[in-house]
Amino acid sequence: MRRLPIALLLCVIFWFPKTTLSQTLTFSAIPDQDESRLIERFTLVELYLEEKLGIDVSYVPVKSYAAAITAFRNDQVQLAWFGGLSGVQARLAVPDSEVLAQGIEDQAFKTYILANTETEVEPGPELDPRILGSTFTFGSKGSTSGRLMPEFFLRELFRHAPDELFDRVGFSGDHSRTIDLVEAGAFEFGAVNYEVWESELARGQIDTSKVQVIWETPAYPDYQWTARGDLRAQFGPDILNRLRQAFLELDDPKVLAAFPRSGFVPAHNDDYLPVLDIARSIGLIDPARESSRP
């Protein structure tokens, strides 16, 4: 009886099973929006891919951009819907990985700068310098449209790091929250993914008497599907092409509307070199990792 605890402890130690070669393709996505919206969207993708490819596909939700990259790096997910920056980071971590496709809108993506209407800063073709010295929120720390690009353009325009430009800089976590925070006045200004703004607007989720778009950034490449190269060993040498083809042929309006994208086009690792350069230039990626091309 006295040995029972020890026996149990040994069980605990040895019971971690070895990785099994399951024939399931697991994918994830950066949590850039309300989780319920993500689950709705990626459950549709799961079904679509299963039907199209004839293999088991399962979606794993994660809590942070970093967790999505880590899961991809550790082969817990083999396919992911990344943003520009997270995709670059993931492909640096897994050199053998490939961009498959991007949304039509992702070829020229934009960030909206939002203002709480009480600031009385009005929309215009140039970003109003009156936002300096205010409170400003980005999205997630690892977001392309919510952090990297807006920070880059702010630095370009005003020649200083955000910490120096604003009285207070926050990271809301995701785009939906950025809108909420600026709408509630917790921050006077914010940077948001334009697609998230447009879709929440269309769903009537935004009180436009409290928050409005005052500026949009120049265009840059953003979201993309990235897959691990070693998927081939598991599902055959043509799996990456089949996956790419599946995305390109995706025309179910319900699935597309859930993204929201009007369709997908082929994309390649090199398309995201500008994102890498920008991430480097503002010090988000160390030069040490330059050796491998994303």
């Binding site: 309300d34 989780e35 319920s36 994660v62 809590k63 942070s64 967790a67």
Partner: peptide
């Protein structure tokens, strides 16, 4: 809160939404 499938996962989701 960091992604393990315990109650905090849904708690974080619920709060932030």
């Amino acid at each position: 809160f960091v992604g393990l499938p315990t109650l905090g996962f849904h708690l974080e989701t619920a709060f932030s939404q």
